[in-house]
Design a protein around this nucleic acid. Sequence first.
DNA 1: AACTCGCGAATGAACGTTCGTTTGCAAAGA
DNA 2: TCTTTGCAAACGAACGTTCATTCGCGAGTT
Lengths: 201, 201
Amino acid sequence: MEKVEKPKRQHILESAAILFRDKGYSATSMRDLARAVGLQASSLYNHIESKEKLLQEICLANALKFLSMMEKVEAMDIPVAAKVEQLLRLHIRTAIQDVTSVTSFNDEWRHLGEPYLSDFKDMRRDYEQRFIHILRQGIEAGEIRAQEPQVVLYTLFSSLRWLYDWFQPGRRLSAPDVEEEILNLLFYGLRCSSELDSESV
Amino acid sequence: MEKVEKPKRQHILESAAILFRDKGYSATSMRDLARAVGLQASSLYNHIESKEKLLQEICLANALKFLSMMEKVEAMDIPVAAKVEQLLRLHIRTAIQDVTSVTSFNDEWRHLGEPYLSDFKDMRRDYEQRFIHILRQGIEAGEIRAQEPQVVLYTLFSSLRWLYDWFQPGRRLSAPDVEEEILNLLFYGLRCSSELDSESV
DNA sequence: AACTCGCGAATGAACGTTCGTTTGCAAAGA
DNA sequence: TCTTTGCAAACGAACGTTCATTCGCGAGTT
């Protein structure tokens, strides 16, 4: 009798994140979630407090995760462009590996109730401002081409939003392949320059 | 006494598109919609057939719109890179001007019922394949830098997804400004090249 | 001028269903 | 024994939608 079973609460949280991603928070019923974890809807409440609490937990955990990623990158002693690259790589990997991340970060946080909605927005704004700060440093240092950091920021963020519902491990392309391809596109753009180099970021 | 009042059915459709964008299809109730147009929920049904019919109409109209845009661009006698540029410009303008476009194109189409869901997916796939065809031509012609057209395609599409809930006309940046900035980023990338040119796409 | 007929548009009440959640109770584990 | 976990049943609320009715108005008839 191994005691390897993962805590049921965690199982519920992960199933919820998947459903929220696939159908959206509002279109996911507690009975859907119960079926996904192999219980009756009423039994869920032995482990969780409410549907919205699930969303709160998912959103909060990921907001904290992104902020801690930011903290690590800020502390690195590398050129600014390399910091941007690091952040983008972390975004890509998170989107590929962690189902819950994009669920909350992109779409479903708007269904949060009111104290939590404002809290989440604040944390998100904080993250964005620190990202913009880095971009601005890069522009001043002549490492990054952009007049409007905010436009660049949102374009970068959004450009990864297809990953979470497109990428699946068994695919033709491996995760590192996709990562390189995206970075190549974001850093060097669509247009071929006069000399035809295209490899390596 | 001007006879300028717009047909009520159109008013309902537009209000629905805004609500679907802001709250999502599932989280938007017919009573929400009724309040938005100044009616009782029951009165809506004098003008429309069902909630889902609203979504169907919005999604279909926009799928057709994007396909007709594609047709026009395909017929142009210009370099491939310029075709990509045209398509991106059209995407950007549509996202900025037309509320309903992104609503359906990005997110809410998944709530369509079954005959319509497959129809929409087919049209979307058609559009994507034709876009990828153009990208591939560009790669062969040496005008476009990319190994994986599909990765590029989704990155390009997604990169515009912030526009629809960010851009509002009274903003610091005008629509053409934003358009140029995004195109500049997508075509030439983040990284500054050795010589510092940054203007004009 | 009065009457009425048809009709589009709006309404409040109600329908059946599904929602998130609570309750009472039984079985299992400590 | 006490706590945890599960389930069936039930709860009130909200959902999309239907229904019978009413109101206002232009056309047709006297």
